[in-house]
């Protein structure tokens, strides 16, 4: 019997480990005690190391890019100074308009929108060899991050939290093929569904060929979305083609967020 086991040891180990791995993969929708313990244990070891490594890499790449772009920074500085002056002026005008808007809303007894509460987070890990568009943030259950929370950047919507560990959280980016968000065409107020393609762009679904949509239209989050506040930019329409049956449109949307350079994100914590 031991000879038999020794002879077939490779095949036995192979079969055993394949079965265990497949079991974990199949039960991923309802993680059991073992899976959860494994996640917590590995995160306990890996997350601090990932944080240190991510900071070191970011600092070194930042330093290298700083040296390489000193002359460009000087030119940009002059341009930005002019721009700041211009924006200051615009800001004053906008503040005045906001005050006026507030007064008018009060007069019309509109329910004012509650401010959105968010938490900044840093990207600590991302596997470039993975086909799935997911990344790991340095905030977790200890920071009151909840599964399903929306994640944004100053440029627009980035994704949502799909898994929360003690000190880290996994987010699924908008680009992921399993991601979908309710979207709205800002100009014509048509609603559709924004879906990831896994190829660096998004598609807008459920828009019929009779709807009013043009190349260049901005897509924003809809009030139908439970994850995001309405009005956050998602992307711009770059091409529109009729679908094979001619009833619907195949719409390609370029996301506002540059997903390749994501470093800091904001996790939405719901309304205050």
């Amino acid at each position: 019997m031991p000879d038999f086991l020794w002879k077939w040891r490779r095949e036995i180990v192979f079969s055993l480990l394949i079965i265990i791995s497949l079991g974990m993969l199949v039960s991923r929708r309802e993680p059991g005690l073992v899976s959860r313990g494994l996640y917590q244990g590995v995160s306990w070891v890996a997350v601090p190391l990932q944080k240190i490594s991510a900071v070191m890499v970011k600092r070194s790449t930042h330093f290298i890019s700083l040296i390489a772009s000193i002359s460009r920074i000087q030119e940009e500085n002059v341009q930005l100074t002019h721009r700041v002056e211009k924006l200051n002026l615009e800001n004053i005008l906008l503040q005045e308009q906001a005050r006026e808007n507030l007064v008018l809303r009060r007069e019309l007894e509109y329910k004012s929108r509650q401010p959105v509460n968010f938490m900044p987070a840093e990207v600590i890990a991302r596997d470039p060899a993975s086909w799935l568009d997911r990344l790991v943030l340095d905030r977790g259950a200890a920071d009151q991050v909840k599964q399903g929370s929306g994640v944004i950047t100053p440029y627009g919507v980035a994704g949502r939290v799909i898994q929360v560990n003690q000190s880290s959280a996994v987010i699924m980016l908008l680009l992921d093929t399993q991601s979908s968000v309710a979207g709205l065409v800002e100009r014509s107020r048509i609603t559709g569904t924004i879906k990831g393609t896994g190829q660096g762009w998004l598609k807008l679904l459920h828009i019929s060929s009779e709807d009013d949509i043009r190349v260049g239209d901005v897509i924003i989050t809809s009030r139908l979305s439970s994850l995001f506040a309405s009005g956050l930019p998602i992307g711009d329409v770059v091409s529109i083609k009729p679908s094979e049956n001619g009833l619907m449109l195949d719409i390609k949307v370029r996301p506002r967020v540059n997903f390749k350079t994501l470093a800091r994100l904001l996790i939405l914590k719901g309304e205050e």
Partner: peptide, 28 residues
């Protein structure tokens, strides 16, 4: 095979992928 199992699970957890996917493929 043993390393594939351990490293695959570690990679899945550290990168937020589906648990077991890398392990299964790397073992094979």
């Amino acid at each position: 095979i043993w390393t594939a199992f351990g490293a695959g699970l570690l990679q899945d957890i550290a990168a937020g992928g589906p648990l077991g996917l890398n392990a299964v493929l790397l073992i094979g």
